[in-house]
Amino acid sequence: MKFKFLSHTADVKFQAFGKNAEEAFENSALALKEAICGKMKIKSNVKKTIKAEGRDFESLLYNFLEKIIYLADAENFLIAEVKEIKIKKFELKAVITGDKASNCKFTNKVKAVTYNEMFAVKKGNKWIIQCVLDV
């Protein structure tokens, strides 16, 4: 399983999984995409490189996901896939593809990433991420 949504009274809570931090971060981005526009299929017309940094894995995740929300609101770009992702210490670089948001009929209901109940940890040989999005 790449990610799953959990019950939360008012907001959207998800868990994402991966065999390493990169994969778990990638799957978090896909969970965010689904929270933004549901299961809508997004074309991979445009390529973008995003960089994020943090003081720990949680703040790195916060900043990474926030950049994806920012792209939807400010740059008319909706993510489809993560093509490459590298995490070194608390710095992340990713190449993502997607489409012009105005080509897709949706309204972004995701307002922000929150630290509420957030964790990004290695358990055994798996990475688990949990995050609540404000909607």
Partner: peptide
């Protein structure tokens, strides 16, 4: 600037949720 860029195209819109 990031906040301005997110908001400038959204004036007069309802939003979702």
């Amino acid at each position: 600037e990031r906040a301005v860029k997110r908001g400038i195209g959204q004036l007069g819109t309802l939003g979702a949720g």
